[in-house]
Amino acid sequence: MDTVFTLLPKKLEEQFRKIPLSMANKVEELRIRIGRPLEVIIEGRPTFLPYLVHDEDARQLLHHISKYSLYALEEELKRGYITVSGGHRVGLAGKVVLENGEVKAIRDVSSFNIRIARQKIGTAEKLIPSLYTDEWHHTIIIGAPQTGKTTLLRDIARIISTGCEKRNILPKKVGIVDERSEIAGSVRGVPQLDFGPRVDVLDGCPKVEGMMMLIRSMSPDVLIVDEIGRPEDTAAVLEAVNAGIKLMITAHGRTLADLKKRPYMAQILDQHIFERFIELNRNDKSGWGCTILDETGNALPKIGSVKE
């Protein structure tokens, strides 16, 4: 949390410091909106702090985040979010300026959403035996939003690049195409989260080009890509697979059956490339649960739910 606090101007920091320490570790989002009270989301539940945010606070916050250099954030203001050190993401909303019908930047930012990045090291540990037999399997992680796809993917990347002596898994070269700076949370190209030694990240690069670029330039053993599903992704995925590289990707959906209904994903699945499917679901009581399916769609022996 301290890395987040350093971002905030003094006034706001004082307010957020009032959150008791026991809760502070569970904070998921801090929301700051002009003219409205500060909001803190802890484990999915909103709490409000009795402090109305002024224009001045918002302006100062933006300056703090940009280190007083708005010009350095041009690209970020266009995309609507900024990744800051620590891997946290600051989402922005406000008045959008257009140029030739395209978004040029967000000016007059009025809402900030600071999403706290919290790496859950070890979440994927239990799944490894199912994903690795002599070599890594092509894997798709399937889950609805907020089920922890990216968290899991991140941990898988970490394990692949670190290897696992216990299970006799050698560290492999991992290439991450991080289109939305979400997997690695890079700042100036350097991943802020722990990924082990053998990771190369293409930050902010479109998936399609990024996958090919990485294959040509960094010769990865495993490629990690988030949120496959657009038409152009299909070709890139097939290309990469045929280049002899193992793929770990995520896709939106609840089950494998769901995925088969999506036209572009169906094209990929029809090739029978992917050997493992991890279906993620989140329920309030037991945290995360997941089912792993093999290439034919049959469930592998249950390894138990992965609790937070």
């Binding site: 940009s66 280190k67 007083y68 250099s69 010009y71 350095a72």
Partner: peptide, 9 residues
Amino acid sequence: IMYGQTPLT
């Protein structure tokens, strides 16, 4: 500023 996009500090 133009080419490096270096923060002011």
